[in-house]
């Protein structure tokens, strides 16, 4: 049987969604509370890793996961670079905060472009940690012969 025992599968199915939402919360509230892109991204990646461990994977799934995670990782990096470059071309300085006084401090809508950077970093870190996991796990397929 693929994956782990039914107990693990059922628990993973229940918990996985909550872990994902918690990760998103950590990313989105990164400018207000401890956390941010890196911590939240790691939690999101943990959700995917949990489901992969619990349900098991085949070689073809490993391959498609490695391709899609590398594309997401690059997209996250490009988004972050784009936010920094927008600062350069709109605000005149690399990494400048484009609308620092928008919203009320301490609320979700505040801190200008920092939340957007957090989202980009969150995508990048989640995809990167997942792809590290996939690469480490898929060595068993590469060298099976």
């Amino acid at each position: 049987m693929k994956g782990m025992t039914p107990i693990v599968k059922v628990v993973a199915r229940i918990v996985g969604g909550f872990i994902f939402i918690y990760g998103c919360y950590i990313v989105l509230y990164g400018h207000l509370s401890p956390g941010g892109g890196f911590a939240g991204g790691a939690i999101i990646a943990a959700c995917f890793i949990l489901s992969r461990l619990a349900f098991g994977t085949t070689a073809s799934q490993e391959k498609s996961a490695s391709i899609s995670s590398s594309i997401f990782e690059s997209t996250g990096g490009l988004l972050f670079l784009l936010i920094a470059l927008l600062g350069l071309f709109v605000g005149g300085y690399f990494f400048i905060n484009l609308f620092p006084s928008f919203g009320t401090p301490g609320r979700l809508v505040s801190a200008g472009s920092i939340p957007f950077s957090n989202i980009a970093i969150g995508i990048k870190v989640a995809a990167a940690i997942l792809s590290i996991f996939v690469v480490l796990a898929s060595t068993k397929y590469i060298f099976k012969e």
Partner: peptide, 24 residues
């Protein structure tokens, strides 16, 4: 004035673009 930024941003952007484009 902005050359130092471009010297970082151009190769970094290229490095992130390649994994997407090279699949095509």
């Amino acid at each position: 004035e902005i050359f130092p930024v471009l010297l970082i941003a151009i190769p970094l952007g290229g490095a992130f673009l390649i994994p997407i484009l090279y699949k095509a």
